[in-house]
């Protein structure tokens, strides 16, 4: 439990595995001041700390871009792999297969996911690989100085005045349709919602896909942008209010069951979704996709948990792997004995 042992001088607050929040911090961010990505890193730190995740049992993955740099800015005690552009999914798949006992959090961007990486993204979602996949979504390429990405909304405007004339890829609708089992959208400026969603994500077994609108203060935070702080403050339309009670927390909450959609997570935690839109059922896949498409037509930015399925087998389940990590299986379990080769040789004579 998150209680400190009595000492003469009160130390820092410890989480339920006895670590202070500083053990979840990373290096100093080199992103722009005010970048949404920094706020997301902060929420990841909070979520990991509050959930009592053992840092050594988490792997941080990323592709290439501003967003993909951010794993350097949280959880230095976790192994991290900043891979190649758009290919975080395949590297993550391999890393998971090497040690499926570990948890994995990946940070990608809208370019990394929806343009160069859309092929691997699609197949990751299909596989329901256990990992948290975060898109830090600002609609532009930052490191190359502000070109549109494939999540930029139709009609949105660059600082240079260029209007985007192609429709946006809705990564949430795509992820739901393809088989991800926990799909939501949040906003880097919404501390409460994002934290609750991240904590629930940590409790989920399967692919969690979170599209987090994260304004780029340098290239896409102006009038005419649909990924700006101002736009989000105005048009953010939560579909549900996300609440989360971890399995180790002993909190009794009174609520009217008609108002709350209560989902029991894999680790025994509860995801409590207070209905804001009438009767939105986050387990109804077709309805989730329809709702997102309708919102797009109305120019609303829906946030919240759109879809959750705690039953679907993960990729690991389908592979029927031994419980131990494949990486450290002893030779006696991986190299067949001499008799096996002898048998093969005699069958080939």
């Amino acid at each position: 439990m998150a209680t400190t042992t009595p000492t003469a001088t009160p130390g820092p607050k410890l989480n339920h595995i006895g670590l202070p929040v500083i053990e979840y911090r990373g290096g100093k961010s080199t992103l722009c001041a005010g970048c949404g990505h920094n706020a997301i890193s902060e929420r990841i730190i909070d979520a990991m700390f509050e959930m009592g995740v053992e840092p050594e049992r988490m792997m941080k993955m990323s592709g290439i871009g501003c967003s993909s740099k951010s794993p350097a800015y949280f959880m230095s005690r976790s192994h991290s792999f900043n891979s190649v552009h758009g290919r975080m999914p395949s590297v993550s798949t391999g890393a998971h297969l090497a040690n499926h006992q570990l948890q994995m959090l990946g940070v990608s961007g809208d370019g990394d996911t929806a343009s160069i990486g859309v092929g691997q993204f699609v197949h990751l979602m299909r596989r329901n690989l256990p990992m948290i996949y975060i898109i830090e979504d600002n609609g532009v390429y930052g490191l190359t100085k502000g070109q549109f990405s494939a999540t930029a909304d139709l009609g949105s405007k660059l600082k240079t005045g260029i209007i985007n004339d192609l429709p946006a890829i809705d990564t949430c609708a795509l992820a739901i349709q393809l088989g991800a089992t926990f799909v939501g959208r949040s906003f880097s400026g919404d501390k409460k919602q994002l934290l609750a969603m991240l904590k629930a994500a940590i409790s989920h077994k399967g692919t969690v896909m979170l599209d987090v609108i994260s304004p780029c203060v340098t290239f896409n935070d102006h009038e005419g942008s649909t990924k700006s702080y101002k736009f989000m403050q105005e048009f953010d339309e939560p579909i549900n209010e996300v609440g989360f009670v971890a399995s180790f927390e002993d909190i009794a909450v009174d609520y009217n069951s008609g108002e709350i959609y209560d989902v029991e997570m894999h680790d025994g935690s509860s995801l409590r979704l207070r209905k804001l839109h009438e009767d939105y059922d986050p387990t109804d896949k077709a309805n989730a996709v329809r709702t997102l498409m309708e919102a797009e037509e109305k120019n609303e930015v829906l946030t919240g948990v759109f879809y959750i399925n705690t039953e679907k087998p993960t990729f690991t389940d389908l592979l029927n792997l031994v419980d131990e990590p494949l990486s450290t299986l002893p030779e006696s379990m991986t190299r067949p004995p001499k008799e096996a080769l002898d048998r093969l040789m005699s069958s080939l004579q």
């Binding site: 792997m59 792999f81 891979s83 190649v84 290919r87 999914p89 395949s90 590297v91 993550s92 798949t93 391999g94 890393a95 998971h96 297969l97 090497a98 040690n99 092929g119 691997q120 197949h123 990590p325 494949l326 990486s327 450290t328």
Partner: peptide
Amino acid sequence: LAAIGMVLGAGWGGA
């Protein structure tokens, strides 16, 4: 591309 990505992810993970 994905095949080699998986190979390197797994190799990094110790498999």
